[in-house]
Amino acid sequence: MLSFIARRCATGLLMLVALSLLIFVLLRLAPGDPIDAYINPSMPMSASDLETLRDRLGLDQPLPLQYFGWLRAALSGDFGYSIQRSGVRVLPLVMERIGPTALLMGMGLAIAIIIGIAAGIYSAVRRNAWPDIAMSVLSFIGISSPAFLTALLGLYFFSVLLHWAPSGGMQTAGAPFSIADVLAHLILPACLLSIGHAALIMRYMRASLLEVLNQDYVRTARAKGVREFWVIIKHATRNALLPVITLIGSTVGIAVGGAIFLESVFNWPGMGLLLVNAVGTRDYPVIMGATLVIGVCVILVNILTDVAYAFVDPRIQVA
């Protein structure tokens, strides 16, 4: 087990290095002088200071050396300054956005997992009854409709027409911080984020449970006289969950994408909004920092899913 985790972490680390290399090369292709990123815009510099800085950052050196210099700085937490917001360092800017995005995605995925698994079990058990067919059609629509459209429609119906939820932001402006207030702002975007994922999880859960229900051990359990409810929950669902766990791990990456659209529609102060604004204003240091942090998070989640999978399913040989 330990060697499996270690191996998985090693490939993750390799991925991370490759990712940083990719981002570095891509953004060096971008127009503009990279030294702009490291000048604190609120403090003008003389030409000789600029040369010193260029020398210190190694920007006069060949690209491979530059990469290592950038990597060393990035590892010690120095991503430079935001071009757009004068004098703000990139790292704290990115770090303060992780919390809201994690909150939104965590809540959205939690709702999606609960609804998706419950609906999947129900429609597998009542296969081909009308609720099953209705849910299949709904899930197809859910998978096909893009996050930005569901976000707009949700905002229009639930905030503008029905006034059930606030229309954006994370807190009421001017009001003191309270958990109830944040929750009230969170619930609508989180539900909208969960739609596509709930639909996907439902389809996987249904297919996987249908397969398990045909297995011999399910028939054995029924023949032993186990009540149908417990056959479904204990014998079948536990085994049918395995592929669904992998799916959930891999949807985290997609959820990041959905979160970007929801954040920009609902003005949710997360990573997505930061990244979109940075891309809009060509604020390359922020783009680099944010992309790298998101990449690290996604790779970490993937490793965790694999490890969790190995724990849950003893058939996976970890040697």
Partner: peptide
């Protein structure tokens, strides 16, 4: 295939944004 793995690791929309910014 490692290159493909890498391209599939990054969330597509993020990748899209970075490319579009360039």
């Amino acid at each position: 295939m490692r290159f493909v793995d890498l391209a599939m690791t990054l969330p597509p929309v993020i990748f899209l944004l970075v490319l579009a910014s360039i």
